[in-house]
Amino acid sequence: MIKNLTCIICPIGCNIEVEIKKGEIVSIKGYSCKRGEEYAKSECKNPLRTITTTVFTIDGKVLPVKTDKPVPKEKLFDCMKAIKSTKVSLPIEIGKVIIENIEGTGSNVISTNNMR
């Protein structure tokens, strides 16, 4: 089976062709960097996505956040649920951990902006 992927690692968006036989990757073509190759492998086994979203502060402001590592794609909405029920208090520095090890994914939700 040939699987055609669009690499999402960077904005270049390479078209990658993965050949799979009996559940095993036989060949990967079309990537232009090491991370692209890794993406293709992971995308065929366990697709991962970085979540970027917001959390509310206690006084109603909106703080942008992201997962510091990609999380399994099928856990996106579970993670969103956990993020939705989180509120933070200010001030907050960029990079501060808001939720540790979200949904057991090993990824932390961190602040992506300074806010006071």
């Binding site: 960077c10 904005p11 970027t52 917001t54 992201k66 960029i94």
Partner: peptide, 22 residues
């Protein structure tokens, strides 16, 4: 632009809009 995808060429890492701005 709180999504990521900024900074690949400039900083060789993937940043969100506010992080790139900072």
């Amino acid at each position: 632009c709180i999504h990521n995808g900024f900074g690949i060429h400039k900083f060789n890492e993937e940043l969100t809009g506010p992080e790139y701005s900072w």
